[in-house]
C-alpha cells in the first residue's frame, strides 16, 4: 500500500543558473540514492506549503547519494525553495514515472532536442549517455532558449560544445550583439545536422508549442514515430495514478509517462 509520506532530505548545495533557475543538490536522510532513471520526476514537499513535481536533472549514477533538481521560481512552492539555503530540510516523494528507455536505444544515434526548461530533465539523459558513451552512436544535442542569458547549465553546455563526444548546437530567439551562434526557432537548427533516420532516436522536451514543430521536422527527416520520445508536462499531483490531474485521455502521465513515444502520443488526442 502506498501513502503520502515524504522522505526527509537535505539541501547540500545551491547554484544560481539564471535569473529564475537554481540547481539544488539534495541528499536523502536515509543515505540511499534516489535510484531513478533519466527523465523521471520527484515531488518536493515543503510542509505547510505543499508539493510540486520537479524533474531530476542528474544522471542515475553520477554522485552516489545525491541528486540534482533544477527549479524555476514560478509558484508558491518553487519560490519558497528559492528562499531556502544549504542544510535546510525538504521532503521528497518518488521517483515517479517511467523514465527514458535507455536500454532499448543502445547502439543508436541519439538526437536530443531541448527547449527552454526542457534541458533540466534532458540533462539527466545527456550525462547518462556521456557516461555510457560506448553504448551509443552519435549524440547530437540541440538547445533552444529565449535569450543567451536563459541558457541553463551554461558552463556544462560550453564544455559540451568543445567535447567531440557530443555534437552541440544552440539557438536563441532573441540575440545580443555578442552572440556568435544561431538565432531563431529550434527547428532552424535541423538544417545544420545530418542524421541517419534509420539509426536515430530522438528525445524532445520543451514548452507545449515546441513539440508539434519539432516532430514535424523529425518525421520529414524520416525518423520512425516509435523512435521519437517526448517528455510531457502535466500537473503531477499524487504520483500514484489516482488524483487525475495528469490524465491524458486514458493514461495517467505520472505512471505511464512522462516519457511517451510519438507512436503512443499521437493516439492520445490530448497529448500534444
Amino acid at each position: 500500500m502506498f501513502n503520502f509520506l515524504p522522505m526527509p532530505a537535505t539541501i547540500v548545495d545551491i547554484r544560481q543558473l539564471t535569473d529564475k533557475e537554481r540547481l539544488f543538490t539534495i541528499r536523502l536522510d536515509n543515505d540511499r540514492g534516489i535510484r531513478h532513471r533519466p527523465c523521471q520526476f520527484i515531488l518536493i514537499s515543503l510542509l505547510g506549503i505543499g508539493e510540486a513535481p520537479i524533474s531530476i536533472s542528474s544522471p542515475p549514477v553520477d554522485s552516489g547519494r545525491t541528486f540534482e533538481l533544477c527549479i524555476r521560481a514560478v509558484g508558491n512552492l518553487t519560490n519558497a525553495m528559492h528562499r531556502l539555503s544549504v542544510n535546510d530540510r525538504i521532503g521528497i516523494r518518488g521517483p515517479f514515472g517511467n523514465g527514458f528507455p535507455v536500454e532499448r536505444i543502445e547502439g543508436k544515434d541519439i538526437l536530443i532536442v531541448a527547449g527552454g526548461l526542457g534541458l533540466a530533465p534532458l540533462r539527466s539523459l545527456i550525462k547518462y549517455v556521456l557516461q555510457e558513451r560506448g553504448r551509443y552512436g552519435r549524440v547530437i544535442l540541440l538547445i533552444g532558449t529565449k535569450r543567451p542569458g536563459d541558457i541553463l547549465f551554461k558552463e556544462e553546455v560550453l564544455k559540451w560544445e568543445e567535447d567531440p563526444a557530443i555534437e552541440t548546437h544552440i539557438t536563441v530567439d532573441v540575440a545580443e550583439p555578442s552572440w556568435q551562434r544561431h538565432v531563431g526557432v529550434i527547428t532552424g537548427l535541423f538544417k545544420h545536422v545530418g542524421i541517419d533516420p534509420f539509426k536515430t532516436i530522438a528525445a524532445i522536451v520543451g514548452p507545449p508549442v515546441m513539440y508539434r514543430f519539432v516532430i514535424k521536422e523529425l518525421l520529414a527527416k524520416g525518423i520512425f514515430e516509435g523512435n521519437i520520445y517526448l517528455d510531457l508536462e502535466r500537473r503531477m499531483r499524487c504520483g500514484i495514478g489516482k488524483c487525475g490531474h495528469c490524465q491524458i485521455n486514458g493514461i495517467y502521465l505520472c505512471q505511464n509517462g512522462p516519457v511517451l513515444s510519438y507512436l503512443e502520443a499521437r493516439k492520445l488526442q490530448e497529448a500534444l
Binding site: F4, L47, G48, I49, G50, E51, R237, C238, K242, C243, G244, H245
Partner: peptide, 13 residues
Amino acid sequence: YCFDAVDEVCPDM
C-alpha cells in the same frame, strides 16, 4: 475519485 492535496497549518505555525 480525483482529489487535490492541500496543506493547512495550525495558528501556532
